[in-house]
């Protein structure tokens, strides 16, 4: 590719890993995703015949949009509101993963975007945090009896893969070919593996996210539930982050 720079300092293997391999892996992922979306669209969508219910501020469309962006409103669900630290981890981890994917394109084609030391430092902080969070998630999955009970080999492998990949991203971020080629190679090969693996694993949940969210939101919007008001449970401030404790006794 013409956009590739410093070819003189890049080994043929790294050139292959950051360019052709990524294109092949991305194309493969896109192809599988097309099949996956086609597959899900092959199932008939349920329809609602009844007139809408509930508050006029709610409609199917508003509900669907609210539902899609619900994840960015941690106050909207007790599950996220009551676990703000967990939500924060979720946010950082996903931003780190997204940024790392972006970096796999930036390094070969737009390296000037991450040439600044401050940017590199910021990236490393982000990947480092993501890596630590990933490790924490892996430990939680192993230690918590609840999470262990629902975990599959794919769950363990996916979080381990992302954690290791973020560690390589952390090391590869300076993009110093002379000193960090090992990390760059590891990062790009892992990215390629990740792209090949993702469509078949739980990591592809983001493909289903728009479907689940859209349909749930549409249904609950038509039925007057979504969008929920700001404090849907009408909780006083003292209870806003607390869950209900069962009554002791019988």
């Amino acid at each position: 590719m013409d956009a590739l720079y410093h070819l003189d300092t890049t080994s043929p293997l790294l050139q292959f890993a950051e360019d052709k391999l990524q294109i092949i892996a991305l194309s493969f992922m896109a192809l599988v995703y097309i099949f996956k979306v086609k597959w899900i669209l092959s199932f008939k969508a349920g329809k609602e015949r009844q007139a809408p219910t509930g508050n006029p501020r709610t409609t199917a469309q508003k509900g669907a949009v609210y539902s899609l962006f619900n994840i960015f409103m941690p106050w909207s669900m007790p599950s996220t509101r009551q676990h703000p630290f967990f939500y924060l981890q979720f946010g950082i981890f996903h931003v780190a993963v997204g940024t790392s994917i972006a970096m796999s394109i930036i390094i070969p084609y737009f390296p000037q975007l991450i040439a600044n030391e401050a940017v590199i430092f910021a990236l490393q902080v982000l990947f480092g945090l993501g890596c630590v969070i990933g490790l924490g998630r892996f430990i939680r999955r192993t230690v918590s009896p609840y999470i262990r009970a629902i975990s599959t080999p794919d769950d363990y492998f996916s979080v381990a893969l992302l954690t290791v990949w973020l560690a390589f991203a952390f090391m590869a971020a300076p993009n110093n070919r002379a000193e960090t080629e090992f990390w760059l190679l590891g990062y790009f090969f892992l990215t390629a593996f990740f792209l090949f693996y993702v469509p078949f694993s739980k990591i592809s949940h983001y493909i289903f996210y728009p479907f689940t969210r859209w349909y749930l939101g549409k249904t609950l919007g038509r039925r007057g539930v979504y969008p929920l008001p700001l404090n849907a449970g009408n909780e006083p401030l003292s209870r806003l982050f607390a869950n209900t404790k069962p009554l002791e006794g019988k």
């Binding site: 199932f43 349920g46 289903f208 479907f211």
Partner: peptide, 22 residues
Amino acid sequence: KVNRQVVASLEACVHCGMCTDQ
């Protein structure tokens, strides 16, 4: 019986456990 909504719901769970204490 499965329709698009149900298939998406059955596919999308990431086993995060956020539903547990709800």
